[in-house]
Design a protein around this nucleic acid. Structure first.
Lengths: 156, 156
DNA sequence: AGTGAAACGGATTGTGT
DNA sequence: ACACAATCCGTTTCACT
């Protein structure tokens, strides 16, 4: 992970369709070099994949919320079962399994507040393992443009 | 957003480097048709962009956490200022502005627990507007493979 | 809006330095 | 690691339906 790798990674996180030629030129290296570096990043697993990013409002998902959920009993089978449930629900973008007071956080995106309420009371509350939950509507979200490598844990 | 648009969207969310030819073939349509559909999705803003997805452990970011933060006073300028701070910190992947008891949730990814602690006590606690925070370490995360459109709010 | 074909350009590979 | 060149293949455009 030198400077060139980092720059390529930043470029592809910003726009995965940027051509190899363009990136090479912007970095002042040969296209063949840039190409091999990019292949290496994929081969080493630094790049997990290339994905299209969708606009949630355009898909009738103008309302987002983070839902903190407590699960009981806190057994592996129950946790796995709830995560399977979460993976199967179209409303849920991602789910986090946590340490601490909350066992799960669900990132949901739905049409409007009515549908959020319906999801919470008709779907989530119906689950036997759900001991409680707390909902926070998302006003705004900001994401890092490019995720960069941090210093090695030992070498920092 | 008909069936073809949805299928193209799903394919590109799964792998943005899938070729137009491949997608067209899998859907049983002509490459030129598929190409125009994809262009339309981008033009209409349904596709916000194409991004490389990175592997956090490969970038020395093996520890993730969600940090709920309370901010005071709750003025626009303070909220915007804190969000700017969040956008500038390399540890932070994304930040959410919320309704409810928590004003912010920060999704952070750092090398290890030592660095998480250091970020919390050296960076976050130092901010005057931070009235309190609660940290949940992430054990696991699951993301939806493809985000699909939901029924229109009025027509459902 | 969809199709087929033709032109264009970048990806990919191999060779040599 | 870099540069060059040559092939391959997908993208892109266009005329037609």
């Amino acid at each position: 992970m030198d400077e060139v790798d980092t720059a390529i990674l930043a470029a592809l996180q910003d726009d995965a369709r940027r051509t190899n030629k363009e990136i090479a030129q912007s970095l002042g290296i040969a296209p063949s070099t840039c190409h091999e570096r990019t292949r290496s990043l994929v081969r080493r697993g630094v790049i997990r994949g290339f994905r299209a990013e969708v606009d949630l409002p355009a898909l009738n998902r103008g309302v987002q919320a983070l839902v903190s959920v407590q699960i009981r009993p806190l057994h592996r089978s129950v946790i796995d079962g709830f995560q399977d449930f979460a993976s199967g629900r179209p409303e849920i973008l991602s789910s986090y399994v946590l340490a601490g007071a909350d066992d799960f956080v669900l990132h949901v995106a739905v049409q409007d507040l009515d549908h959020l309420h319906a999801f919470l009371v008709d779907r989530l509350s119906k689950r036997k393992e759900v001991a409680g939950f707390r909902t926070s509507v998302v006003y705004r979200q900001a994401r890092a443009t490019a995720v960069t490598a941090l210093e090695a844990p030992g070498g920092g």
